[in-house]
Amino acid sequence: MLVQIVVSGLASGATYALIALGFVIIWNTAAVVNFAQGEFAVAAMFVALVLSRFGHVPLFLALPASVAASALLGWLTERIVIRPVIGRNAMTVVTVTIGLQIVLSDGAKLIFGGQPYPFPAPFSGAPLGFGGVVLPRQSLLVILAMALLVAALHAMSVLTPFGKRLRAVAQDREVAAMMGIDVNRTVAQGFAVSAAVAGVAGVLLAPVIFVSADLGLPLLIKSFVAAIIGGFGSYPGALAGGLLIGVIDNVVSYAVSTDYRDVISFLVLIVMLLLRPTGLFPNHR
């Protein structure tokens, strides 16, 4: 059973990792901690829900469309909310993103109410079995998507001109601008990519945990912890941090009690910050 618990924890952790990746992209691009990151995932969930359930759009079209909508929301966020405060006091920027989180969350509640909505899984069927360990198809899809996205983000960062622009802006905005890089445009694109990654997490999670307006904050907290444990700014770190948090949550719930799950997760965070403040993979960006 313990193997089952660990495998399920990896599946949960993969979703935290995906949202943590979004944190890292924005941090690496604009040096902004975006506390509205979880709401990008929720926005994608609701767009997919509206398209598939009320618009009767097939899932294979609704899912990419909702990720695109999330990307658009990320781009608009940068243009409307973040750009005017970038460069000001760090607390100002953080406060703005917290305010945005509340606006998006409460806005979703006003539109959709507080009730959860079921969402169909793209690949339905009995869970897969591997030597006595069962894994729902959707959880397997989440793990695979996470692995693919990490690889794609790494390739984008290293191999593509866009990735190089992102890294240049992250390293020094002024020098990047002197080199002819449109910094504002690059940061806006970074927000769009980050929101798209969160959107992927959202649409993958929707069939597993239902669609609800109050999901953003819990997703944000776990993913933020994952990003810090991994080393804020590190793609592999976000991945490792997310998986670690997912496994710790499940093992503690199983071996001790769910009442102690968050206590132990945050103890791990505190210990990590005391012993290794730069996280698990500080130099892997």
């Binding site: 059973m1 089952q4 618990i5 399920s8 924890g9 949960s12 597993v208 945990i209 109050d214 819990p218 997912g246 949550d249 499940n250 093992v251 719930s253 199983y254 009690s257 769910t258 009442d259 799950r261 968050d262």
Partner: peptide, 20 residues
């Protein structure tokens, strides 16, 4: 007897203990 938090989304640990 097992408890969980409102808003929990992963019930593998609780379900596993019940099955066991």
């Amino acid at each position: 007897e097992l408890s969980y938090a409102v808003g929990d989304t992963d019930f593998t640990a609780i379900a596993g203990r019940l099955v066991q």
